[in-house]
Each structure stands twice: as C-alpha cells, then as structure tokens.
Design a protein around this nucleic acid. Sequence first.
DNA 1: TGCTAGTTCGCACGAGTTGCAGTTACGCAG
DNA 2: CTGCGTAACTGCAACTCGTGCGAACTAGCA
Lengths: 148, 148
Amino acid sequence: MQAPAELTTAFRQRGLKLTPQRQLLFRLLHDNMTHPTAEALFATASELMPGISLRTVYQTLNDLAAMGELQMLRLSGGSTRFDPNVIDHHHAQCDRCGELHDVYVDHLDDLQVRGFDGFVPQRTDIVFGGMCGACHASAETNQSHRPT
Amino acid sequence: MQAPAELTTAFRQRGLKLTPQRQLLFRLLHDNMTHPTAEALFATASELMPGISLRTVYQTLNDLAAMGELQMLRLSGGSTRFDPNVIDHHHAQCDRCGELHDVYVDHLDDLQVRGFDGFVPQRTDIVFGGMCGACHASAETNQSHRPT
DNA sequence: TGCTAGTTCGCACGAGTTGCAGTTACGCAG
DNA sequence: CTGCGTAACTGCAACTCGTGCGAACTAGCA
C-alpha cells in the first residue's frame, strides 16, 4: 500500500474525503507487517484516538481493499486479516501460534497444474502451514523434556 | 475420506458411536465433489432424515475433520466448505459464481520459496482465483454484445 | 462563510458457528 | 434379551465477525 501522503491524493482524486480517522489508519497500516485484524487495528487506533468507531475501521479497510491498496486474508482460525503488502507474495502460517508472515515464491509460472478443465486462473494464493521458528524450537525442547 | 463401512469401524475403534445421523452424513459426503457447506449438507440430510439437527451436522463434520477424514476450507465468500478428498490436492475458485473445484499440482517440491526465516513448512495450500469455464464463456459473450 | 455529499458513530441485525442441558439411544456386559 | 453407562442428539441461547441503517457531523469546494 502507498504511503499516507500518496493515499491522501488517491482518496481525494476518487472524491473520497480525508478524515482524521482515515489518516490515522493510513499511518497504522503503512509498513505494518503484522497482518492485523480489524479488531487489532481498532484497539491501537482507539488508544491514539479515543472514540473512533469499529464501524469506521471496517469501513476504511474495505475502502482500501476495494482500491487495491490492501489485501484481505481469510485464513483458518479467527477473523479476516489485512495485509498492506500488495506486492506479489504469499504467506506462511504457524499452526501453533497462528502467526503469519510473508514469503516470496519464485517461478510460480512453472507450476504444472492438472484439472483446470476450462478454468482460467488469474491469481494464485499459496499458504504454507507449519511451525514458525520460535514454536518449532520450543516444541523440540518440550520433546527432550518429555516425562520418563 | 474412507468409505462409510470403513468409517464405521474407525469410529467404533475410537469409542465413538455409530448413529443413523452419522451414517447418513457419511453417505452424503462419500465421493461428494461439491465441497458442500454445513448448511448444504444439512439441507440434503433433512430431506432424507427429517428432524436431524444442524448442530449434529456441525458436530459430525468437526469429528471427521479432527480424524483427518475431511478437509475444512475457509475461503473468501461465505461459510466453511468441507472436502472429503484428503488426497494431496489444491483448489480453483471462480471469482464470479464462487464454484470451487479440485486441481492437482505437480512438482510442488520444486517451488523456490524465499523468506521462510526459520519457518518449518509442513503443508502447502494453493488456491487459484479466476473464472470457471462457464463464467468465462458468458463473460466473453457479454463483451461481444457490448453496447456501441 | 455556507452548502452538500461523503463520513462517522452507535445500535441493531444477520450469518455462521458453538456451548449448554435435558433427553435419547448405541454398544457392551450379563 | 435386558439393563446400564456414556456418548450423541436436539433445540435454544449465546457468541463472533461483519454489515445495514439513520441521525449527526464535517471535509472540501464555491
């Protein structure tokens, strides 16, 4: 997603207004690598701007997603997450702690897919399931501390 | 997912009981390629067994998923879908009609992924977005019928 | 400064799913 | 076949996530 200043312009150009609430959310989202949920953003935003409405957070997130500035991620476990990174990338989700982070896949076009059967693919979303480094390490530890 | 007869055995072995409701659901799911939702299964089941509860459908689906006999799919648009095909495969979803079908991807191991950063991948879920054959055809038609 | 359309907010609603409690019935032992 | 214990079924209420709606507000422009 673009920097707050560019978003300001982009919104105005579309006849959308630039409210303090939106500007706050722009700032909270820019360079945000945490894949936050609407609730999480609302919590952070509430601290900086008491009284902001959860409704407004959803509204703004939907607007940004519609403008292609935000990717919406519906994954297993919980609510929709929002990803300001709209560069071609994919995700790795930890089965244990649920943490999500970005990964980049090369040569995706080389994939050989059988069964499209007339389907015309336009996007490819890959989600790797597994264990993040931290969880994997602690799992190993638990294993060696197993009760006799 | 295994055939109803094998599931019967598998359930008994786990101390789970074999009720008519479950047997019905086993039959409805076996070889079901439609990726049904819980509601859809409930609707079909209700015709064959009036009085069956939606709660029971959810319960059984969760049990089967926990046993690894069913894959739960949380995709964009609506509710969780259930896939009795647990053989290594992936999905193609039509952006227009929402239809979902199975595809098979070869040489997945050859994928070059950057950014795992300690993450230990165990599963790979790929969802292709695009248009199914039917929708693509009708979209083409609309295009050629464009108003002048 | 004043107008107006887009925004915000709060509430209520809706879809999807789960928790709970009372009743039912599967599966095993006698 | 009968009786028992426990798992399962059902119906309802509750819960989560997200959206529709209307009144009040305000950004942006003339």
